[in-house]
Design a protein around this nucleic acid. Structure first.
Lengths: 144, 144
DNA sequence: AGCCGAATGTTATATCATAACATGCGGGCT
DNA sequence: AGCCCGCATGTTATGATATAACATTCGGCT
């Protein structure tokens, strides 16, 4: 989830670079993997990447996958939504982003029952995807 | 969640120390915080703590909070269950562990629909708890 | 031009986690 | 007893992730 954006200024150069690198990757990328991919474009230090990621996350354009310490571009512009569910394959590393009204509604309900003013949520399911389950050791998607 | 234990041998000394330190703490503890608390009892290195945590987690006696990089003792011996939900206050740092059949069932359903053979799940709700919402800046529970 | 705020660049360091290898201890076997 | 073996442990070093702190640059505004 990670609450609503603030204003809608255009993305800065570094934010654009980071977002495009994430959108182009088949799997979630860590900050240092992003940095490696963006050295050519002039990025030099982790802080530059983390700053861009922070702002992209604040706008809801990027999500952090807590169980992977990695980031994905948000595909479904799921504006005005609630909790997001990530489905992650431990073999091929791919992550799918879902929303589900049952989950969303019940999580909000649980927070309310617990007296929690909800700021953000993280829901991640890990396992073996269908494609990897079919092959012996799982496919290997170029950790590119 | 983090799937079922293996066998039921007694806990080793280090495992016992770590579990008791977690059970005694009012908030989730990081591995290095645990190490600090256990130096008196003879623990010296991070690997010792991480090893004990790994085994305690494998038995379901300890959970890892992914959004905090920290660990909690499992209170409710929620044997033979599914996904667990953590409710975390960002002010006081306290975490509550819940289980909910609606969430559990629906997450399993989503995994199945997505073709994922579920290995483990992580569900964390972050916000401000009732107690902290009432006070200006939130209470401060001795990060002890 | 001069100022301001925001994004950026840069260096250093904090924090979290694991690899790799050596040591010790207990239980079963012959 | 003596040996072997598995497993927990101890220890050192290093890898991986993230942020603090401060200098610099850029664009808009008056």
């Amino acid at each position: 989830m990670t609450v609503a954006p603030t204003a809608d200024a255009p993305l800065t150069r570094n934010q654009t670079l980071v977002l495009e690198a994430l959108a182009a990757a088949p799997v979630p990328l860590g900050a240092y993997a992003l940095l490696d991919r963006l050295r050519d474009q002039g990025l030099r230090a982790p802080a530059q990447v983390y700053r861009a990621l922070d702002r992209l996350q604040a706008r809801g354009l990027v999500h952090r996958l807590e169980t992977l310490n990695a980031f994905v571009a948000c595909r479904e512009a799921h504006r005005a939504e609630g909790p997001v569910v990530f489905v992650i394959c431990e073999h091929c590393g791919r992550a799918r982003e879902l929303t589900d009204e049952v989950i969303g509604g019940r999580l909000r309900g649980l927070a309310a029952e617990a007296g929690l003013a909800l700021h953000s949520s993280s829901v991640e399911l890990r396992g073996t995807c269908a494609a990897c389950g079919r092959t012996a050791a799982g496919t290997d998607p170029e950790t590119r």
